[in-house]
Each structure stands twice: as structure tokens, then as C-alpha cells.
Computed example of a mutant assay.
Amino acid sequence: MKYAGFIGPGFMISVAYIDPGNYSTAVAAGASYEFKLLFIVLLANIIAIFLQSLCIKLGTVSGMDLAQMCREHLPWWLNIFLYVLAEGAIIATDIAEVIGTAIAINLLIPQIPLVAGCAISIVDVLLILIFYRPSGSIKGLRAFEFFVMALVLAVVICFCIQLSLIKDTSVGSVFRGYLPSKQLVESQAIYQACGILGATVMPHSLYLGSGIVQPRLYAYDVKHKYYTPTPPTTASSSSSS
């Protein structure tokens, strides 16, 4: 139970891996090759876990997120280059998120067109930015994390219900998909595999992973007296001294 308080940030990071981009890519791969590309899914998730663990360790040890560390230790021209690459990748992946959300809203409420659904998806991101206060009260932060956890668990339950409805599929055929096969080198399968890899290993999730642990680490260190916060100095105190 010592590290149970860090489950919330873990659930928030998991949102980056259960987004509409992942859904659409995985569904397209499954429709074309059934379970034969599960090896790529497994490989992509192993890579993502490895990179995410490195980012979390970076944030834990240094007290800075990935973007801050890049700015601190890399030359300015390389920071600009990395920013352009990361921003381009984020925009490319967010296109699937926005359009996927709009399609989902349209399926649930047909009266809402796709353009309005895209606008709603943009507004909900702004609302999250408004309510998410990493430097605020830890109770408020936990309430936000519980809200995200409820959404993630709802997605998991829905997927479990959908998987239970699948008929005429043996467990062996599913597990055989986690082994490399000759279908992986087919031309169309390579495109699908690249899509799965790109939808799983995303730059914004790495920046999120290194930064989202900061408030919880700060509260943990202060609570266990590993760190004593320095009171801010005021102009009056400095002038009197």
C-alpha cells in the first residue's frame, strides 16, 4: 500500500493507450489479418512500457519532466527540432482522436453532425485543462484521477462485454497471434504494423508520463519528510533583512 497513491497517475497515463486512434488501427488490423498482428501489438506495448518507465524514472530522480530536461541539457537548435517533430507527431495522432470522438458522438447521437462532434471533442480537452490543477490541492487532483479511473474502467468493462459476445474463436488461435508469422512481412501488414506501432508509442504520452508524477512525488516527499518546502520570500522580508 506504500505506493498505492501512484495508481492514479498510472490510470491517467493509460488513457493515451486506449484512445480512438488505437481502436481504429487495431480494428482495421483485426479485420484484415484477424489475430496474426497481435505480435506487433505485444511488441509495441513492450516498447511503450520501457520508454514510459524511463520517463517516469527521469521525472522521479530529476524532479523535471522530459520537456524541461531537454531544455536544460540540449542546445537550442536541437530543442526546436525536437519540438517540431513532437508537435507534428502529436497533431498526426490527435487527428484520429478528434475524428474518432466525433464519429463516436455521431453514432450515439445521430442528430449531432461530425463537425459539431469535432468541436465538442476540442471543448472537452479545454475543460480538462481547466480542471486539472497539478500544483493545486492533492485532494482535488485525486478527485480528477478518480474520474479518469472511472472512465478507464468503463472502457474495460465494455470491451469485456464485447469480447464475451465473440463466438467460434478458439483460445489457441488468439495466443498463436502473439507469435511472429509470415503475414507480418506482407505489404499491407507492414502498413498495419506501422500504424499499430505509431498509435501505441506516442510522444505526448512520454511527456505526460514524466510530468504527471511530479505533484504526487512532491506530496509524498513532503509527507514523509524527505523534502522540506522552502517558504516563498516576500519583498517585505527581503527589505527588512
Rank of each mutant, 00 (worst) to 15 (best):
Y218N: 09
V152H: 00
L127N: 04
L108G: 11
D94E: 13
E34I: 03
L184R: 11
L179E: 02
K182C: 02
Y33L: 12
V213R: 04
C158T: 09
T101C: 13
I40R: 00
I99E: 03
L165K: 12
V84K: 00
V213L: 11
V171I: 11
I46L: 15
G59F: 05
V222R: 06
M12S: 12
P134N: 13
A26H: 10
G30W: 00
V125P: 01
A28E: 09
L114K: 03
E145D: 12
M12V: 15
V41G: 07
C194V: 15
V27C: 00
A48V: 00
G63R: 09
N22I: 12
Y226W: 06
H204I: 02
S137N: 14
Y191H: 12
A119H: 02
S238E: 05
L78F: 15
L37R: 04
A150F: 14
S53V: 14
I166F: 08
L197N: 02
P20N: 05
P113K: 05
L54D: 02
V125L: 12
I190H: 08
S205I: 10
C194H: 01
V123R: 02
G140I: 03
G117L: 04
Y17S: 07
Y227F: 12
Q111Y: 06
A92H: 05
L179T: 06
V15K: 08
A143M: 07
A116R: 01
L51E: 03
D94Q: 09
E186D: 11
G117W: 03
Q214E: 11
F6L: 13
R176Y: 06
V222G: 00
I18F: 15
C194N: 02
P110R: 08
K57Q: 13
T200I: 07
R176N: 13
V171E: 06
G177H: 13
I40Q: 01
L114P: 05
G100D: 08
P203L: 11
I47S: 13
F35I: 03
K167C: 04
E72P: 00
C70S: 15
D221H: 01
F147M: 12
W76L: 10
A102C: 09
I95E: 04
I13Q: 01
N106M: 07
L43G: 08
D124C: 10
P134C: 12
L37M: 05
P113G: 09
V222M: 01
